[in-house]
Design a protein around this nucleic acid. Structure first.
Lengths: 213, 213
DNA sequence: TGTACATCAGTGAACGCGCGTTCACTGATGTAC
DNA sequence: TGTACATCAGTGAACGCGCGTTCACTGATGTAC
């Protein structure tokens, strides 16, 4: 099965950046890679050539700003993790109840995943590219987002809504795994007979926050 | 970054099957693909050429038994789902308590995933290959495995250990998503500081089976 | 019993493709004197 | 004010690679007559 791939160049060309603004291209590349990911829904469609073409620049130009493809993809991930972090922060802004806040974060997380499934794949379903034992840059950004959740769990503990002798970080990992479970299954098997997705998600959330008051 | 790929042929050649045993090769191909997946831990290493070479046969021979690569990979998935199903059945064989049985299934599931991470990726973390709205063959096999869990949930309901007004199929989906969550995160981010994995898994399980007696 | 023929289980060589990446270069713009 | 030079922001062409897949073929084995 040959996958049709629009291989003709877009025709669009990007005007050369003025002196001192060479870094503008970096941002454009990053944006183009993200758009390609969102529009094609296929990581394999994000090739150096495809990104360059979308930006309106030649392929080697990518290497002026990223040493290799892996680094570019990592940068896309970091950006996405940052956006997720922002959304997680925003989600709790107007929520008073601390358990509701955690639920809102869970909902926001799954919404983000389903809204940008291919980003989510890249962030959390991909084989680790480099065999580092040290945490990657993207993972560090992820940890920042997790921090938002840990904060709320601590708050719930302080408010007596959650057993105070649990390590909030570990509770957060469990919650993460739960929302990741439902999000990634829905993404990986979109045609599976899940029934009502909203209902399914509510059940997961209820399971998570079950012993909260 | 160029990934080193052992591209020289193995040297091993498979003797031609006697007449009437042409289908033997099919089984060998399937086995070789599975081994390659397990040994390299990399789906991309499972190419038609690599599989053929491992079997000791030329690349076009693969097409005598599989119309294309996608079908071969699907067959590997079906086989793996079947094995998982067998394990799920075996897991509950000597377990009397019906809630313990469900817990044992959860544990078996995660063990399977971590033992064969690249199979698990192929089964449940891959982008759907063909854009069918109908469930794929592999998904149907997966449903069989889910059936094992649904049985146990029904049993637990009958025994009064679980609220009887819940649809056991939907409860099963929620449990599945929970164990998939922890399994797939551990697989996708092996270097993340998860802490004690066994402890993490127990917490997930406890969260799932929480309101069971 | 001998022989023409069909079938089976493959093979060797090639196809075209897109990929990541490198290399030597170009041409506009600023700066030093 | 004029001019040589450095720097910056790129480009065009090519590299070698492995991939899925197709095609025409081969040679051993069985079968019909």
């Amino acid at each position: 099965v040959i996958v049709a791939r629009s291989s003709q160049p877009s025709g669009h060309t990007r005007p050369r950046s003025p002196r001192g603004h060479g870094d503008d291209l970096r941002a454009d590349i990053l944006a183009a890679a993200g758009e390609l990911l969102a529009e094609t829904g296929d990581q394999d469609a994000v090739s150096i050539r495809a990104v360059a073409d979308r930006v309106g620049v030649s392929a080697p130009s990518i290497y002026l700003h990223f040493p290799d493809k892996e680094t570019l993809l990592t940068a896309v991930c970091v950006e996405a993790f940052t956006e997720l972090d922002v959304r997680l922060a925003a989600a709790t802004e107007r929520v008073d109840d601390c358990v509701e806040a955690i639920a809102a974060q869970g909902r926001t997380y799954v919404e983000f995943a389903l809204e940008r499934p291919e980003h989510y794949r890249l962030m959390l379903m991909r084989r680790p590219g480099r065999e580092l034992d040290a945490p990657t840059e993207a993972e560090l950004t992820a940890v920042a987002g997790l921090g938002r959740v840990i904060e709320r769990i601590s708050a719930a503990q302080a408010a007596g809504r959650l057993p105070p002798d649990e390590d909030p970080a570990r509770v957060a990992l469990v919650l993460w795994s739960a929302v990741h479970g439902i999000a990634s299954l829905l993404i990986a098997k979109p045609h599976f007979p899940w029934g009502d997705r909203e209902d399914l998600f509510r059940r997961v959330l209820q399971m998570c926050l079950h012993d909260f008051d």
